[in-house]
Write a protein that binds this DNA or RNA. Sequence first.
DNA 1: ACATAAGCGAGACGGTACGTCTCGTCTTCTG
DNA 2: CAGAAGACGAGACGTACCGTCTCGCTTATGT
Lengths: 211, 211, 211, 211
Amino acid sequence: MIAVESLAKPGRRRDPQLDEVILDAALAMFADGGYRGVSIEGVAARAGVAKATVYRRYPTLAPLLVDAVRVRLCLIHELPDTGDLRADLLAMMQPLIDRLLTPDGAVLAALMAERFREPELAAEFDRSIIGHKREHTRMLLRNAVARGELPAETDVDLVAEIPAAIIWHHALNHLTINAGLAERIVDHILASAVTSSNDLPWVPDGDERHT
Amino acid sequence: MIAVESLAKPGRRRDPQLDEVILDAALAMFADGGYRGVSIEGVAARAGVAKATVYRRYPTLAPLLVDAVRVRLCLIHELPDTGDLRADLLAMMQPLIDRLLTPDGAVLAALMAERFREPELAAEFDRSIIGHKREHTRMLLRNAVARGELPAETDVDLVAEIPAAIIWHHALNHLTINAGLAERIVDHILASAVTSSNDLPWVPDGDERHT
Amino acid sequence: MIAVESLAKPGRRRDPQLDEVILDAALAMFADGGYRGVSIEGVAARAGVAKATVYRRYPTLAPLLVDAVRVRLCLIHELPDTGDLRADLLAMMQPLIDRLLTPDGAVLAALMAERFREPELAAEFDRSIIGHKREHTRMLLRNAVARGELPAETDVDLVAEIPAAIIWHHALNHLTINAGLAERIVDHILASAVTSSNDLPWVPDGDERHT
Amino acid sequence: MIAVESLAKPGRRRDPQLDEVILDAALAMFADGGYRGVSIEGVAARAGVAKATVYRRYPTLAPLLVDAVRVRLCLIHELPDTGDLRADLLAMMQPLIDRLLTPDGAVLAALMAERFREPELAAEFDRSIIGHKREHTRMLLRNAVARGELPAETDVDLVAEIPAAIIWHHALNHLTINAGLAERIVDHILASAVTSSNDLPWVPDGDERHT
DNA sequence: ACATAAGCGAGACGGTACGTCTCGTCTTCTG
DNA sequence: CAGAAGACGAGACGTACCGTCTCGCTTATGT
């Protein structure tokens, strides 16, 4: 009886399906023409939706794309820490590389390129894609140093950037990206592994990895 | 009096001063708003020039910016090959880093970001800025491997990309770039230098064979 | 038990108060901005009512205004036929002129103007305002001719139109309308009265008509 | 040599052909749907012209239609004054009636209807169509009174309005308009002609006026 | 009493037109 | 012919209503 507060708002609900087609259309246009190629008018047309329906959801283009990226290109995944540096690094890189090899790759690369100019885009991108990867990688490396797997003088901050730097460098320069890239990067990082008193278990079979 | 050659076309000459103000305006607009922020209309307005005056010189935006970059941001420099890997690598990186620290740095980074979408821009950019640096770096590394300075199993192709990848990664992610970065990169690359049981055979005979 | 006719439908009744505020709002908007200035959206807003509440009652604008006019501006009155042509004609015109002098006058004039384009509006307007006045006036004139008060060659059809034509001409052209107008029109019509063999009893006092 | 002032402005001239197609399109849309049916967007589309091309010429709809009317429906003609009241009145009415019988008639009537609400439209309409006709008619009637052709007590101001009032009343009420209407109106006005001491040369043949 | 059904406020939806803006091209004039 | 000025077709911008529709609630029966 005592309806303290009726939380239900009056009026028709927004159609959740439209949310999706709008985001899809936005992402598709972005893939085609980059940030420049996206217009709210165009998104509405492509989504088969009235302009007002888009404007009702997003006041400007940026949050629309931000949402499109968050919802459609989410790359967040578990950050591994098994103690096996090689495996952990590979596990960090693989999802990104896999994604770059799909059609979404073009979108991701475009996004990476545009993010320089679009702070909002960049922020969201960092959150959902790059996220805490760098920090996590740093930690993995620090642990490896502590365990003695990597030399004490390793420039952890720098090395931690190498995977992302190389991968995005490839993506943005239209250089080939393939499954072997991750392994080559890991091999490079582990090349300075402390080999002091023992054999190098990975040397014998480390030859045919270069694709 | 004797017009030996009538190469002189009739009509008014193009005003060379306008060439300059146009390029300046283009670069300034690019710095302000990136590729998106540049329009021939805007450039003309900023240069205090009629639109046709710009269009007469450049059919589209790309060659205009390409020219602006070539003329105003030329980064071409000597590719060093002294035999001192450390010094050579540093010499390769320093001009770029120096430039990135000036106000032009924003322009360069923006250019680097936009080049993903603009093949023409990318081509010119590669020619005048990145140029043959990658190939040259590869050669330097190969020579170092040949001299035994670097381990035989060094992934030369990958390592050669590290300097550019790291520097641009910093530039595009608004990470700090400072003079020490080049040294850190070189140190990292040389960390795997063969130091095992002997002196450094390359020091005494580090001659200047490659020009 | 035997619900011979279950005319009473279930469900909530329409709120009769809303009928009124809707019509009032419609008429007010019409007075402000003419047919163009009326929109169902606007009427709903002005009436403080949901759009659907209006649309439930009137499918389109026309019947809404038609109702508003019928209910609020009814001009139907007795059509006099006393045998006194002068008095009868005056009695025909007076209610309209009186109404045109009230604030409703603007609404009526607007309605008269719009009716050209809006057949539905025109039909209702004719029914409730103009009605059978023309035909009645014709009859009065024919009778006057028959009685010999008007010349036999009188163009009854034309003369019967003069009162309405003049009055609406004034209304639509923003010309002054005043109480004397009706008298002037009657005087004009009676000017051709047969004066052959007798005095004109109404002439002596026919001077002060011009207001 | 002394170019005191170069009145010629620089820049491309407005295309006079476009002036015409725009006005034609506007008039056509008006004929189809009345003032309500005209939109600048629609005019541009119908004229095969960019919106800006219309907006460059007319800030809003009203002056556009005003111009369309002025240029395309000009009804200005000589105001006759031959001393023959009958002929002069006929000459005044005939052009209007003729026009109303053409396809333009619908446009004119619509315009007449809309003018009530659109002061700008009305002003232009009065200037180019109604213009000084009323005043001229008044003068003709005054002269006729002075010559003794009309009774001294004629209500000149009222009678002068009859032609226009009747004709527009017909037009706005979708009543038939035909060539005979002008004659009937003139006959009516002359019905009160002073016939005192002379014959009425036009009476005998005044029968076939009803078409 | 309580399901049924309509009324109602609110507002989402696909549209259309608004008036403004900028784009790259085209045209006309002056120097 | 170069250059300034600006008209032009094209089309996106963001706003405002249009008329329809879908909600969640309220109100009145009819069984």
